[in-house]
Design a binder for these strands. Structure first.
Lengths: 149, 149
DNA sequence: CCTTCAACAGACATCGGTATCCGTTGTTTT
DNA sequence: AAAACAACGGATACCGATGTCTGTTGAAGG
């Protein structure tokens, strides 16, 4: 729950591309599928969304593949969610009431708003840069710690 | 996204039952389905989860129906989520890595933890009492405001 | 005791997200 | 120009969540 498969795949792919951003190299769909544990025949669908949304640049043919269009710092998780046809659906009432709004809320309105607010805040403030930094942390930890267990 | 249908139905039903708690009366599945906008033939599945989880008490036959087993203040949204076979799945790595943990995180681990933490915190601190209070607010607003638009 | 009511339980049917497949288009290399 | 490469795009298959239906069990009223 929380995120559907497609959205989760998108995040994984973006995480890989973010980690690869500095190199300037492109990553092929096949590699990406393997690295991000995405079904090989499904990844084209996932990537298409990201390309259309302008987050990822695609190039065909020899030396082709995918690459972020801008620095990881400038791509928020909200960008990725939006690309994966995620509707922030703040507007949709938990009860499906058309007339539900802050002035005339349904009984779940307040609690729902809090949840969405919390998730949206997270998605807006978190960028792919944080993902990258963790890759570094990962490497550091691996090298510094004795590979005991 | 965020919540699946079954979970959302569960919340709606609980909201109705919470609003009805003080009366001590039971609500029949059919009424509940109508009030909470749940498919009439699906609600039995939804309610069963809540009954098994001990949040709701069911009685068959004449005058039967559903009722909360305890005061709305003592039922958190997390209780409802757990009942709707929601796995808090803090443990599951975003990349599906078995070895992913705080000391050896995958590149999405930190961001993921933040999201789950935020959602879990919300679910734990929010109770059905807040739902009820809004019902009151709702009534107040309706009576106090001129029914202009 | 019999009838009625209403939750229970499980067998289906349906639908949409997920996954697979395959031919097409565009790019690079030779 | 031809061949190899890799993303694109749509058609189709699959599967689990959702929704429907029917009969059963248990409780209350007459």
């Amino acid at each position: 729950m929380l995120l559907n498969h497609t959205a989760e795949y998108a995040f994984r792919a973006m995480a890989i591309l973010a980690g690869n951003y500095d190199s300037g190299e492109r990553v092929r769909a096949k590699e990406l599928a393997e690295l991000a544990a995405i079904p090989e025949h499904y990844i084209s669908k996932v990537m298409r969304h990201l390309v259309v949304a302008g987050l990822v640049e695609a190039l065909r043919g020899h030396g082709g593949g995918f690459r972020l269009t801008r620095a990881p710092e400038r791509i928020t998780f909200m960008d990725v969610l939006d690309a994966s046809d995620w509707s922030s659906e703040d507007r949709r009432c938990a009860f499906g009431f058309g007339a539900c709004n802050p002035k005339n809320p349904c009984s779940l309105h307040n609690a729902w708003s809090q949840l969405h607010g919390c998730v949206n805040q997270w998605a807006k403030k978190t960028t792919l840069a944080e993902v990258r930094s963790l890759e570094h942390l990962h490497a550091e930890l691996a090298s510094q710690a004795a590979p005991k267990d």
